[in-house]
C-alpha cells in the first residue's frame, strides 16, 4: 500500500463538508437510531463551522443526507427568516448545492429548531430536529451514566413521580415544551423543545424524524408510523397550549400555534408561529396561486 492510496486527491472541503469517515459514522448511528426508536445512540459528533448549541447535531444529520437534488427547508422557532435558520440554510447550500425552499410541501428535508410545521409531512419527507438536551431523565437524574441504566431497565418511575407531584402541587402538569414521550412502548424520549402542540404530530406520523444533539453527542429517531405517546395519567388528559381560538393578526389564520406579541396597551396580539404557512395564507388572500397543505390541526382541533 502507498500513502496516496489511503486518501483521495486534495480538495479544500469534502462534499457536504463532513469527510467520508465522519459521514459513514453518522450513517451507522442513524441506522441504529431508526432500528431502536427513541433510544439515544451515542456518536462522536464532529465539530462543524457553527457553534455548539446552535444546531450542530441537526446540521451533521442534514449534511449526511443531502444531495444536489435535495430540497431543504430550515426553520427556527417556526420561522424561515430567523437569523440562525438563514445562516444554516446558507451553509447547507454552499457545501451541498442543494436547493432551498420555504414551503413545507416542497421540502425533502426539513431541519428545525423547536417546531414541527403545521402542514402534514409525507412519507417521503425527513424532519431533522435540533436537540439541546437529549435526556428526558435529566431533571430527575443529571448523571448521564445513571440515566442510561434507568433507560436500560425501562425505569421511568421517578419521571412519573415528578409529573404526579406537579399535578398535586399545581393541579396540572407544568412541563411546557420538551414533553417526555414514550416511543414504541419502550423508550421515553424528549421530542426536543417543541411545544406540547407539536408532540401529537409525531404519533404515527407518515414522515421519518431524526433528532440529533451535537453538543451532547446523542442521536435518536422516530420512524414513520411509530407510536409516540406523551406521558400522561389515564384520568388527566394531555393538554396542548391554549391556542385553538387564537387568530393571526397578519394572515387571519386561526387555530394554529401562535407567537404572542405584547402590546403597548397591556393586551396581546398573536401571529402564526409557522411563518411560511402564514405567508401562504396572505399570498392566497392577495390572489396568488398557492397550495395550502392538509394540516394536523383543523380549527384548532387535532385531526385523527
Amino acid at each position: 500500500m502507498k500513502l496516496d492510496q489511503l486518501t483521495k486527491p486534495w480538495a479544500a472541503f469534502s462534499y457536504g463538508f463532513l469527510d467520508e469517515s465522519a459521514k459513514r459514522e453518522m450513517r451507522r448511528r442513524i441506522l441504529k437510531a431508526i432500528a431502536i426508536p427513541g433510544y439515544q445512540v451515542p456518536y462522536a459528533s464532529r465539530e462543524v463551522p457553527i457553534a455548539r448549541g446552535w444546531g450542530t447535531g441537526g446540521l451533521q444529520v442534514t449534511l449526511t443526507l443531502l444531495k444536489p437534488a435535495s430540497v431543504v427547508k430550515v426553520i427556527d422557532q417556526g420561522a424561515d427568516d430567523s437569523v440562525n435558520a438563514s445562516s444554516i440554510r446558507k451553509f447547507l447550500r454552499r457545501v451541498s448545492s442543494a436547493k432551498e425552499t420555504l414551503d413545507t410541501l416542497k421540502a425533502d428535508i426539513i431541519q428545525s429548531r423547536h417546531r414541527i410545521p403545521e402542514e402534514k409531512l409525507r412519507e417521503d419527507q425527513i424532519l431533522v430536529l435540533q436537540v439541546p438536551n437529549p435526556e428526558p431523565l435529566r431533571p430527575v437524574q443529571p448523571d448521564m451514566s445513571e440515566a442510561r441504566v434507568m433507560h436500560g431497565d425501562a425505569d421511568y418511575g421517578q419521571l412519573w413521580l415528578t409529573l404526579y407531584e406537579q399535578l398535586v402541587r399545581s393541579g396540572r402538569i407544568m412541563q411546557g415544551s420538551s414533553y417526555p414521550s414514550m416511543v414504541n412502548g419502550r423508550h421515553v424520549m424528549t421530542p426536543s423543545p417543541i411545544p406540547r402542540w407539536d408532540v401529537p404530530k409525531m404519533h404515527m406520523a407518515a414522515n421519518l424524524t431524526i433528532l440529533s444533539a451535537g453538543r451532547e453527542k446523542r442521536i435518536h429517531a422516530v420512524p414513520p408510523y411509530t407510536r409516540v405517546e406523551p406521558l400522561v395519567f389515564d384520568d388527566v388528559p394531555y393538554r396542548v397550549e391554549d391556542h385553538a381560538d387564537k387568530t393571526c393578526y397578519r394572515s387571519g389564520a386561526m387555530g394554529f400555534f401562535m407567537n404572542e406579541l405584547p402590546q403597548d396597551d397591556g393586551s396581546s396580539s398573536f401571529e402564526i408561529s409557522d411563518s411560511q404557512y402564514g405567508v401562504k395564507h396572505i399570498q392566497r388572500r392577495e390572489g396568488e396561486a398557492v397550495t395550502l397543505g392538509e394540516t394536523y390541526y383543523r380549527e384548532g382541533r387535532l385531526e385523527r
Binding site: 483521495k8 457536504g16 463538508f17 459521514k23 463551522p49 444531495k67 454552499r94 457545501v95 448545492s97
Partner: peptide
C-alpha cells in the same frame, strides 16, 4: 472557505 458551491464526486453520489 470558497464561495463556490460544492458538488459531489461519483463516489459521493453512489455512497
Amino acid at each position: 472557505m470558497t464561495h463556490a458551491l460544492l458538488l459531489p464526486t461519483a463516489e459521493d453520489t453512489r455512497s
